[in-house]
């Protein structure tokens, strides 16, 4: 039987499908890659539906898209409570306490993550124009995500956080003190992020570097090293130093085009 490989998540799909069964990306469009090697995250068609475990997720809307989930009886998802848009009355909610709660509170991160258990419907969205980035995680994958960028994850993915190392990275890095880390163990899981503006991804070869505005950083494979580097450039009337995040491969780096500049210097 003919199969089509999804150019976003590399899953194999039935040739009759028009969108990827695993991540919802359109299958019949060419892969949009800029000359400099950045691949655009696929803009999901309105009402696209895809599966995870025994549940489904439908993406609705273009400007601030909504992820509407129909959870199977044994499935559950977790999320930050302020992204919850609506739910069926019968969908049970609970809380998942995270380790390091006080540290996370000081860092402005939620220290309690909400959990929705199937069966039932529940929907999530964030608060600004952007793209929903669907990242199916295969067993053994580790992904680091900018704080407050994750929308919802399936229960098969374990959630923790990593403290950004180095005082210079914390003070000048502009990505906060912590990054969320998502790891899959034995079974695949689904992670959905909301990127502000447009989202692009680039795969760095071992040792390959790119400098990224820290506010634009969205996610990276845990194999990618991130380090704040000072540019030979002063900004503003009082000559503030400018820092960018130097990403060193191997691995994927995802960025968002709309961000608040972390240190405008004026």
């Amino acid at each position: 039987m003919d199969r089509i490989e999804c150019q976003w998540c590399h899953s194999q799909n039935d040739a009759t499908l028009t969108t990827c069964d695993v991540c919802g990306a359109p299958l019949d469009v060419k892969d949009l890659v800029s000359e400099s090697g950045w691949k655009e995250a696929p803009r999901l068609r309105d009402m696209t539906e895809f599966k995870f475990s025994i549940s489904t997720c439908q993406v609705e809307g273009h400007v601030v898209p909504v992820a509407e989930m129909n959870l199977g009886a044994q499935d559950w998802v977790y999320f930050e409570h302020h992204v919850l848009l609506w739910k069926d009355q019968g969908t049970p909610l609970s809380q998942m306490a995270t380790p390091g709660g006080v540290k996370r509170s000081f860092a402005g991160m939620p220290h309690i993550i909400s959990v929705a258990q199937g069966p039932g419907r529940i929907a999530f969205s964030r608060d600004a124009p952007g793209e929903m980035v669907v990242l199916p995680l295969h067993p053994g994958m580790e992904l680091d995500v900018r704080e407050h960028a994750f929308l919802v994850a399936s229960g098969a993915i374990s959630y923790s956080y990593v403290r950004i190392k180095g005082l210079a990275n914390i003070v000048h890095g502009g990505t906060g003190m912590f990054m969320d880390r998502f790891v899959t163990a034995g079974v695949p899981g689904l992670l959905i992020l909301h990127g502000y503006g447009d989202v692009m991804e680039r795969t760095l070869a071992p040792g390959e570097k790119v400098l990224v505005e820290p506010g634009g950083f969205l996610y990276k494979d845990s194999t990618v090293q991130m380090q704040a580097v000072q540019l030979p450039l002063k900004t503003g009337m009082f000559g503030r130093s400018m820092y960018l995040a130097e990403m060193t491969g191997p691995g994927r780096v995802g960025i968002q085009s709309m961000y608040q500049h972390h240190a405008a210097g004026e």
């Binding site: 950045w38 124009p129 502000y196 692009m200 085009s257 709309m258 500049h261 405008a264 210097g265």
Partner: peptide
């Protein structure tokens, strides 16, 4: 590149230059 908040990705030839406000650098 992009449609909602498009990015301008410059491929500068040797000697060519552009100028901009530093807060727009992605």
């Amino acid at each position: 590149e992009g449609r909602q908040v498009p990015t301008a990705d410059f491929a500068l030839a040797a000697g060519d230059s552009i100028y901009f406000g530093h807060h727009t650098m992605l």
